[in-house]
Amino acid sequence: MEKWYVIQVRSKAEEKIRRSCEMLISKEILKECFIPKNKRMKKIKGNWIEIEEILFTGYVFLVSDDPDKLYLELKKVPDLTKMLGHVDGEIFPLYDDEVKFLKSLSDCGHVVEISTGLIENDEVQIVSGPLKGREGIIRKIDRHKRVALIEVELFGKTTQAKVGLEIVSKT
């Protein structure tokens, strides 16, 4: 059964390591390799443009049904990688509820779209996008940068990530 695994890599080397994994690890072992991303608006030279950023800096996600072989194949990748969930010779995947939650946040391309919301009496209400109905995971909103800081669980630990959020009105 295919499970999600996470490797920790040097920051800013995620894409290079993702490509290396796809080239060096057998397709029978590595079913998929991806970097979760998020879309957000960013002001560049006075204009707001949509950009994609890495959701969890320093991490690459791998999908496999054979964690032991995957662990051995990762040794072929010529850069520093550390498999998370590797404890005393056993390899643990992300928990099923964590995978389900991450899948629900993003499309099949592993990209979290921009949410739209409004603020009424200091209460955030998300009207569309992946954060709709999940207002409770929002820890902070930066209206100027058009992002929300959210908390998610990975390996039973709370991790923070920034996702795009457009606040269309405040009353």
Rank of each mutant, 00 (worst) to 15 (best):
E153H: 11
E32V: 00
G164R: 03
G85T: 10
L105I: 10
E153P: 02
L70Q: 08
V111E: 05
E2M: 13
E73V: 08
A13I: 12
K37D: 08
L84V: 11
T116G: 05
V9C: 06
E53F: 01
V112P: 04
T158K: 15
Y95M: 12
V111D: 01
V6G: 07
I126V: 15
S169I: 11
E52C: 09
E120D: 13
V63M: 02
E98I: 03
V77W: 08
L105H: 10
D97W: 12
C108W: 12
E28M: 08
K76W: 05
K157H: 10
V63T: 07
N38S: 15
D88T: 13
D96H: 02
I51P: 04
V111G: 03
K31W: 05
L154F: 03
L84S: 06
K3R: 14
D65I: 00
T81P: 06
L30C: 03
F61S: 04
I114Y: 07
E120V: 15
K75Q: 14
F101A: 01
H110N: 14
D142W: 06
D142P: 01
Q125T: 11
V163K: 08
V99M: 08
K76F: 04
H110A: 13
I7T: 09
D88G: 13
Y5R: 06
Y71P: 06
K76A: 05
V112C: 05
Y5S: 05
K103E: 15
A148N: 00
L154Q: 02
K157Q: 13
K3I: 01
G156K: 09
